[in-house]
Design a protein around this nucleic acid. Structure first.
Lengths: 146, 146
DNA sequence: CCGTTTTCTTGAACCTGTCAAGAAAACACT
DNA sequence: AGTGTTTTCTTGACAGGTTCAAGAAAACGG
């Protein structure tokens, strides 16, 4: 768990100005993994009630560009953010409730980064998403989505 | 390349009614891999100028549910559709222009379907996306996205 | 402390995709 | 073919998440 001073150093280390919205956004992403933008706005406003949603969007973009947080967006879902960066883990997404959990990479370092044929692309990242049902949804499946 | 009669049989085989919008949508997806909805609407309207966008959306949903086409949606992109289904291939996405190319699965059947720890989820599909720059963009990178 | 640069606020707009009601078309059966 | 039922298409409005734009405010370097 990182403290305010850590966040401040992270921002400065990334060449970003230290502002209260950014501090709060960074804290919110660290405290709530896989939160969507709306949830982050809610969390941030508990600390800074007057922040605009635009400030949160800008902060998230800046933090993402600085690689302090990672943006994930499974198909059919809104953007979500997480603080685990650089450890090459993957995600498992619930088809029913949209919940996301982390899955550590089975193979080791950069497992699937080697495409069989890169089609001439210069690949810098491999993303793996598992799709299924979370424990809660597979236990008592909701009747919709027939 | 499939012909009109093939499309008709595909629809009937999937238990779907054969309508002109669906035939045209199916043809458009087969002819234009990885096209987004807007492009598909444009292609379909070259053949049927009066189709509503809603009909295209409905057709795409019906075809997707029937597994005749596959919907793909990399993060930050709109929905795209492709006709290769059931052969477990992956995609490489250009960070700059958003272009998508197919990549055959290196490992074989269902390669990464085995998560190291499934977190209690019942996983039914593994999705792999490679991110990088396409040949055109890595050759002459556009100046934006600084 | 001051000036410059970046960031935040405010407010509106955009775009993909969805919802709803009625008209039209496709299929099954005779 | 003709008819009736069911599904699908048209039309039009709407929704949510995200972005754009202009000016005010805050952060940083000297």
């Amino acid at each position: 768990m990182a403290a305010a001073l850590d966040f401040q150093q992270m921002l400065r280390g990334a060449g970003l100005r230290v502002t209260r919205p950014r501090m709060a956004v960074l804290g919110a992403v660290f405290a709530h993994a896989h939160a969507d933008t709306d949830s982050i706005i809610g969390v941030v406003r508990r600390e800074l009630p007057e922040v605009s949603h635009q400030a949160v969007y800008d902060s998230l973009h800046a933090l993402t560009a600085a690689r302090l947080v990672r943006r994930i967006q499974p198909a059919g879902s809104v953007a979500r953010y997480e603080s685990r960066v650089g450890d090459n883990h993957h995600h498992v997404v619930c088809r029913s409730c949209g919940d996301i959990a982390d899955v550590d990479c089975a193979v080791g370092e950069a497992p699937c980064l080697t495409a069989s044929d890169d089609r001439g692309y210069s690949i810098d990242e491999a993303e793996v998403n598992y799709w299924g049902l979370c424990p809660a949804c597979s236990a008592g499946p909701v009747p919709d989505r027939a």
